[in-house]
């Protein structure tokens, strides 16, 4: 490589290639879809979990369940992928359960080798790994609610579910919105480790996202300029999303990440 001064100027050549190369455009679309599914589809679950934790009256039990639910968060993505691989393997537990449910006609198959199931697997593994830990912030918000509100509600004859709906949820609304707004920044930033780990020869072509394509084209095939241009596009969009979501959160709640 020759540095800035002595490299030939190619203008927008590589950016043009991105928009004419169908594989790359698809990867852009896919990155966005995966991001949306994980951010919007995944975000109610930790809140629900935190609400349910809060309703447990036996403190010891609550502590144990919480600790167990945090466990997958501390494992590396590759360990999680290893667990999923053996769970979904042909002779694995998943196929045994399916065989029991479906009955005799069931043919064992490995759904990791079918790209149609890729997004559900990404989504479920994301939930499995993160849902417990993500509930921590909401639990803290719930712990900050004034207990006299619940006492007053009980006096007025409110049941537990009514209390969740009319007291807990409105009180943590602020936290919920902040967390949601802040996660908008990752709409265009699907987890490389997760997607790369779950890809295999059968699914790779149909599941390529920006991160994995940049890695394959750039580091494995040595197309530095093209993949730099591609990666840069992602960086710019992510930064734009981050600034936008921060501006929203600043305007709505006066809280900012900088």
């Amino acid at each position: 490589m020759a540095g800035i001064m002595s490299s030939p100027w190619v203008g927008l050549k590589h950016f043009k290639t991105i928009f004419t190369y169908p594989n790359m455009l698809q990867a852009v679309g896919r990155t966005f879809i995966y991001g949306c599914v994980i951010v919007f589809g995944g975000f109610p679950f930790p809140i629900i979990l935190a609400l349910l934790f809060n309703e447990l009256r036996n403190m010891k039990f609550k502590k144990v369940v919480q600790t167990i639910s945090y466990m997958p968060y501390f494992l590396s993505w590759i360990s999680v992928i290893g667990l999923f691989y053996s769970f979904l393997a042909i002779e694995g537990t998943f196929n045994q359960i399916m065989a029991k449910i479906v009955g005799d006609g069931y043919e064992a198959k490995n759904i990791l080798m079918d790209s149609r199931y890729f997004l559900p697997i990404i989504f479920i593994s994301h939930l499995w790994k993160n849902v417990g830990w993500s509930s921590v912030l909401f639990l803290a918000a719930i712990a900050g609610i004034d207990p006299s509100l619940y006492e007053a509600a009980t006096m007025d004859g409110c049941g537990r579910i009514r209390q969740i709906w009319s007291i807990t949820l409105p009180c943590i609304k602020g936290t919920v919105i902040i967390v949601l707004v802040m996660s908008l920044g990752s709409l265009f930033n699907t987890n490389f480790e997760q997607v790369y780990g779950f890809q295999n020869v059968y699914t790779q072509e149909q599941t390529e996202i920006i991160g994995t394509l940049v890695y394959r084209q750039g580091i494995e095939n040595g197309k530095y300029s093209l993949s730099t241009a591609f990666g840069l596009c992602q960086g710019v969009v992510t930064l734009f999303l981050l600034i936008t979501s921060n501006a929203i959160s600043k305007r709505l709640f006066d809280s900012s990440i900088w």
């Binding site: 349910l52 039990f61 369940v65 466990m71 499995w128 417990g132």
Partner: peptide, 17 residues
């Protein structure tokens, strides 16, 4: 029951390994 279910699906893959 739901909490127990969560514990099972969290721990099972690991215990299986």
């Amino acid at each position: 029951l739901l909490m127990l279910f969560i514990c099972v699906i969290t721990l099972y893959p690991y215990l299986n390994q």
